[in-house]
Lab assay of single mutants.
Amino acid sequence: AVSDRLIGRKGVVMEAISPQNSGLVKVDGETWRATSGTVLDVGEEVSVKAIEGVKLVVEKLE
């Protein structure tokens, strides 16, 4: 699937994400809805860990 190529890629949070609410991330110039187990603020760099349906699962870049 086209989304599989995104796993491991870096992105930037465009709309804040929390465990309760999905947000938006931009990866390779495309905007995706994303979820995370932690709070991520706009502008934070993330990496794509998995894909669930049409949402990316991301975590903060260390």
Rank of each mutant, 00 (worst) to 15 (best):
V46Y: 01
E30W: 03
G29E: 10
R33L: 15
E45Y: 11
D4C: 05
W32A: 04
E44F: 11
L56Q: 01
V54Q: 12
V54K: 06
I17A: 02
S36I: 01
L56P: 01
G29A: 09
D28A: 08
V12H: 10
Q20P: 15
E62F: 13
T31M: 12
M14L: 14
T35N: 07
R9K: 14
L24D: 03
L40R: 02
G37P: 14
E59A: 10
I7R: 04
P19R: 06
K10M: 12
P19K: 07
L61E: 07
V27T: 03
R9D: 03
E15Q: 13
L24I: 14
L40G: 01
A34Q: 01
K10F: 11
S47E: 12
E59F: 09
G8M: 03
W32G: 02
G8F: 03
G37W: 14
V48Q: 00
V39L: 13
G23T: 01
P19H: 06
S18R: 13
V27S: 02
V13S: 02
S3F: 04
K55D: 15
E62W: 12
S3W: 03
W32M: 05
E30L: 06
V13G: 00
A16T: 14
S3N: 13
E52C: 07
I51A: 05
T38I: 13
V42H: 04
T31R: 07
T35R: 08
E59K: 06
K60I: 05
D41S: 11
K55N: 14
G37Q: 14
G53E: 07
A16V: 10
S22V: 12
E52R: 05
L6P: 04
K49G: 04
G29W: 09
G23M: 03
V57A: 04
V27Q: 01
I7G: 02
T38C: 05
K26E: 13
Q20G: 14
A34F: 02
A1F: 04
D4I: 08
V25A: 08
D41P: 11
L24M: 12
L61T: 12
G43A: 10
G8L: 03
E44K: 05
G53I: 04
A1Q: 14
I51H: 06
S47D: 05
M14W: 11
N21R: 13
V27R: 00
G8R: 03
V46T: 02
I51V: 11
L6D: 02
I17F: 03
A16Q: 14
L40K: 02
G23W: 03
K10S: 09
G11A: 09
K49S: 12
G29N: 10
L24F: 11
E62D: 14
S3C: 06
G43T: 08
S18Y: 11
V57D: 03
L56T: 02
V39Q: 11
A16G: 09
V12C: 06
V12R: 10
S47V: 14
E62L: 11
E30M: 05
V57M: 07
